[in-house]
Nucleic acid binder design. Structure first.
Lengths: 159, 159
DNA sequence: TATTGTTATACTCTATAACTATA
DNA sequence: TATAGTTATAGAGTATAACAATA
């Protein structure tokens, strides 16, 4: 005889359920949270957020990079960059500089203070990674890095 | 002679900057975003969110699990579970059931509809993972899973 | 028309704190 | 005192849409 669809499933109905641990997505999320939390704890309340650190790194790395270019690099919206660059500028770490011949853009330049701040943050971040990855051998760390970046590069090169 | 600290760094000052790609945290975030976006696209607007899917999976897996237990399992706050369980209950996928002898808790039970919905979602999620991991060999997928879950287990077993 | 930077806005996710009822 | 569930609330993070200036 037919059963109401929303009755509680009885034990004898129980089928094996694939546990969450077998999903890469679930494990990615948990691992990401661990890194994210520790990053913030490491750099502190007045320190750079992960995003601001990423932006500062790109400005340090790519001379005269623009906000649009950064948004493409990081896969985030242009609009989100305004507040971050505002903050970095307020801290005296970067400057918006007019570009002769292309008046729509403002090149982003890192200051000497910015370089120092980036160096200090970068060292703190490397230590935080070192700490979190201490369970792994050098080889395993490299493997993890390779696998994750292959995933990203593959996705980025899709239509 | 001393320079103002916030002058723009000139090219000759440029030192090598470690690129973001060398940070596990950065690659984790990007990979997590790829999975998250694709998960949502796969299950659609009316489908389960990653969190709701995780919760439903635990309810399917652990008979009479409580919200508190789920919050510990998933590392999220109890308060956040209320809305999720409300939603699952509204959809007729789970029920809150009174527990005799312990009147503070309500056991969560999956319904037959819930089982069906979980099975369908689970199959969609496995396919979505299969799609995203298609760049990797079986062995590489297992390695990625192992590395990520070791990270989580290590962190969970800390003071 | 397309692009850069910007603003305004809203939405999602999630944590915090406080409350209640039990234990 | 401690725990389970709940509510209210606030904050972070981020996307969307529209706009002005420029190309």
């Amino acid at each position: 005889m037919p059963q109401p669809a929303n009755r509680i499933s009885r034990p004898k109905d129980r089928t094996e359920v694939e546990p969450l641990d077998t999903l890469v997505g679930y494990n990615l999320k948990r691992a990401y949270m661990i890194f994210q939390d520790d990053f913030r704890k490491t750099l502190g309340d007045s320190g750079l957020t992960p995003r601001a650190f990423a932006v500062l790194t790109l400005i340090a790395q790519i001379p005269s990079v623009t906000q649009s270019a950064i948004s493409r690099h990081l896969g985030i919206e242009r609009s989100g960059l305004v507040a971050i660059v505002d903050d970095l500028e307020k801290r005296g770490l970067v400057l918006r500089v007019a570009v002769p011949g292309e008046r729509r853009v403002q090149a982003l330049a890192i200051t000497d203070n910015g370089k120092r701040a980036h160096k200090i943050s970068d060292e703190a971040v490397r230590k935080h990674e070192e700490r979190l990855l201490s369970v792994f051998s050098r080889r395993e760390r490299q493997t993890l890095l390779d696998l994750l970046s292959r995933l990203r590069n593959w996705k980025e090169n899709l239509p």
